[in-house]
Design a protein around this nucleic acid. Structure first.
Lengths: 355, 355
DNA sequence: TTGTAAGCGTTATCAT
DNA sequence: ATGATAACGCTTACAA
């Protein structure tokens, strides 16, 4: 089996003590140049690598951070994870990803697993099913640093990274209205999710501001985030069977949007000829679909980066942090191959946040 | 900060020695029922969790496995990772994912990082750019268990999990020919990848068997797997500018297929009216694209599962393994919403493999 | 049945 | 400038 060389081995080979080797390796000034050179050379030659596990035990930290998301096969999250990695690896942290597949049960198990594996902190985006968060509260109270991104909760006071979901939704619905749609339905995820409620509010506000009354029959929830077979299909079917059938749908998320699309296709309903469609999605594929769809995109990569910066700051801060930031970013509305930056101040916000 | 209870704490509290606690906790028969009960209760009450880092140090294993892939934002790999997780978590292993983004450099760095973090084994699918594999050979020779899946190499003797790429490609091209296409181009990934060569061979064989001569101008390589800006666009442009322009394209991979699609769209070339398109992809989205495309799908989830089973077997085997398996699975050809199982023995193979 | 001590690889503290 | 020792949390011979 794989046997790595240790400080002890070097000490024995060079006739020195382990402490000398340790110091020499870290370039301590209290070791003679000559000894340092010898040790360094030997270490180099035999490809010495400090054992991270021993270090972890000593330093009481694992230099790893846990990521809790619902699904990596979702463009938003895979992009966010890329952002997370880009920061974490530079700072010497491992990233351990766990997926809940939108299941509360699995989220609890994963969090338990990660914490028992002594990650130094957690980056969390809640699952759709999650309606109570004791599993996070418990850890947070014990002092485990946690940063939420995208699917946040207001029940835990810590750093959060979000987009302006209200505005993103509002703009999208306004876009539909501008395009002439009037009977706009809303397909949303779980009502437990704060972002769902924000997006719902944005939707309602846009309608009201345009003197369109809100029709509750037009609002469909998918409490399992569309992960349960038939969940989206049924919602779409119900919408399409309404007497006063909607002429457009605003989808609150990636998976919902894509499932809605295939459900509509199965019903042989054409988009946008029969039904207009816009939604929150980071998938570049929507542009491949003919005619290309209007998408609200989130700055996923940046969100991952910022969340990671904040988490590492928490992890490495000496004394308890009492002031927490909620970093608000902006969405982009991508209309048929042309991206319209709704909010000019976007990059400014990001910059400030990373400081 | 987060302070977990240790065996020492329990020992002190109950006036026993740490070894007694350790044994009691593991239910050793050489500890009195009474003591066991006491210890168990106390541990339960204070929510004792063994420190996995201390365990790792003692057992000289981290109970984590490293995954080396190019991109998690690729349906094949995210599905494979789901399979990997499903096995790993049950067996008490952590999964640490790293992405090369098809870059040789990053792959080397990631592997170095993972091994220095003392993972117990590696699940690898090579990056498109990778043309030499010393970074894996070195570790393999030191005894680190490695299992390759999908993008394998024949330069390292170990377990491998693959599909029958030749047959998958052959069937796809035959399908195009059956549909009336005759001038079939091939857009492939890096020539370094063994699977690319197999798929190329399948492509050629199908042509030859149908008395169509192979035209080298019709074969385009993307040595960076389509990750470099313009790589696929240029290849498609070149194909479309040929005097004897192809009437169909067979794509060797997920990213290539989707990039080809958007490149064709940018050129205002209709699929399949102007150009037929089939390719290796696990993306469910191809069905949403109008008209839906023909896809060759790989059993990604199962491949991940089998690879993980094999890796854990290697990790946990007491003596060096000298006989290695190459598990061959079968692809499915998915034609316009109807899935045709080309190979009946598929499930049988999988079963055998997991044994 | 329980305790003592050594060891996993490293670093910090206190000698020398 | 270098060495000895203890400690991080846990397991396991070996003693008692």
């Amino acid at each position: 089996m794989y046997e790595a060389i240790t400080i002890k081995d070097i000490a024995k080979a060079l006739g020195l003590s382990t402490s000398t080797i340790s110091r020499a390796l870290r370039g301590s000034h209290e070791i003679s140049q000559e000894t340092k050179r010898m040790v360094m050379e030997y270490a180099e030659q035999f490809n010495y690598r400090p054992n991270p596990i021993a270090l972890s035990l000593k330093e009481r930290r694992s230099r790893s951070i846990g990521v809790v998301v619902c699904e990596i096969a979702n463009t938003f999250f895979s992009q966010a994870i890329n952002g997370i990695e880009s920061i974490a690896y530079n700072r010497g942290y491992h990233v351990i990803i766990s997926q809940s597949h939108e299941s509360y049960e699995r989220e609890v198990v994963n969090v338990e697993h990660l914490s028992s594996r002594s990650v130094d902190g957690l980056l969390v985006s809640l699952s759709a099913e999650t309606d109570r968060i004791d599993h996070f509260k418990k850890l947070h109270e014990k002092g485990l640093p946690i940063v939420f991104f995208d699917r946040v909760t207001d029940e835990i006071e810590t750093h959060k990274v979000v987009v302006d979901n209200f505005k993103g939704a509002y703009d999208a619905v306004q876009h539909l209205i501008n395009a002439g749609f009037k009977k706009i339905a809303h397909l949303t995820s779980s009502s437990h999710l704060y972002i769902s409620r924000e997006r719902l509010n944005g939707y309602k506000a846009a309608l009201v501001d345009n003197n369109i009354s809100v029709n509750d029959d037009y609002i469909k929830y998918c409490n399992h985030g569309g992960m349960i077979i038939g969940e989206v299909e049924n919602a779409i079917k119900e919408l399409m069977q309404l007497k006063n059938r909607p002429d457009a749908i605003f989808c609150a998320g990636d998976r919902l949007m894509l499932s809605a699309l295939s459900s509509l296709k199965a019903l042989d309903i054409k988009v946008p000829a029969d039904v207009g469609l816009v939604g929150f999605t980071n998938s570049p594929l929507v542009e491949l679909i003919e005619p290309s769809l209007t998408a609200i995109k989130q700055p996923a990569f940046e969100m991952g980066q910022i969340a990671t910066e904040l988490l590492i700051k928490l992890i490495e801060s000496k004394r308890p942090v009492t002031e927490f930031e909620t970093i608000p970013l902006q969405t982009e509305l991508c209309i048929r191959n042309s991206t319209k930056n709704i909010h000019a101040e976007k990059s400014g916000k990001v910059k400030k946040a990373v400081l």
